[in-house]
């Protein structure tokens, strides 16, 4: 099995993986970081979104071996020294989550939207940009509000 190494949430990690191992399985299975979720098998739901070298990707669609040497950030790496990331705080403040399952992907996608589109986000922009993230609980109403508020504070 190929050996790979990468930096995850600032820590150097390594492991042996099969060629077919997905990045999400490496993160959840090998590293035990279970904040990143799997909600579908067709890259539609976005529960598995992480940042690879600063860009949001769906970790269910990347092979772990293809991510050798990259820098990965997951939801577990957002809070620094016990202080929540503004996007995490905004989801809490605006009740942007209910069951919590899509939430890590939503937060990671939200941060990525801000990186690409700036801190002043229109409702319409956020709704369009969330095309790759599905939530079944919130009707998106409060997620949109949370991302808008989180963006302004980033």
């Amino acid at each position: 099995m190929p050996a790979i190494s990468m930096t995850v949430n600032g820590e150097k990690v390594c492991g042996d993986v099969e060629g077919r191992t997905l990045l999400v399985d490496f993160i959840r299975g090998n590293l035990g970081k279970t904040g990143t979720h799997v909600g579908c098998d067709t890259s539609q739901c976005g529960a598995c979104v992480v940042h690879v070298d600063g860009k949001a990707i769906k970790s269910c669609t990347a092979l772990a071996v293809a991510c050798d040497g990259v820098t990965v950030n997951t939801v577990e790496g957002l809070a620094k020294n016990g202080t929540l990331h503004p996007m995490q705080e905004a989801f809490r403040e605006h009740h942007g989550l209910q069951c919590g399952f899509c939430t890590p992907g939503m937060i990671m996608a939200g941060i990525d939207i801000v990186k690409r589109k700036g801190k002043k986000l229109k409702e319409e922009t956020i709704r369009e940009e969330l095309e790759g993230n599905i939530c079944r609980c919130t009707g998106y109403h409060n997620i949109v509000k949370a991302i808008q508020a989180g963006a302004a504070k980033m």
Binding site: K33, T34, G35, T36, H37, T74, V75, E76, L78, A79, L84, Q88, F91, R92, L97, G100, F101, T103, P104, I107
Partner: peptide
Amino acid sequence: FITGKGRY
């Protein structure tokens, strides 16, 4: 949930 510590 927002810190990835949910336990499903």
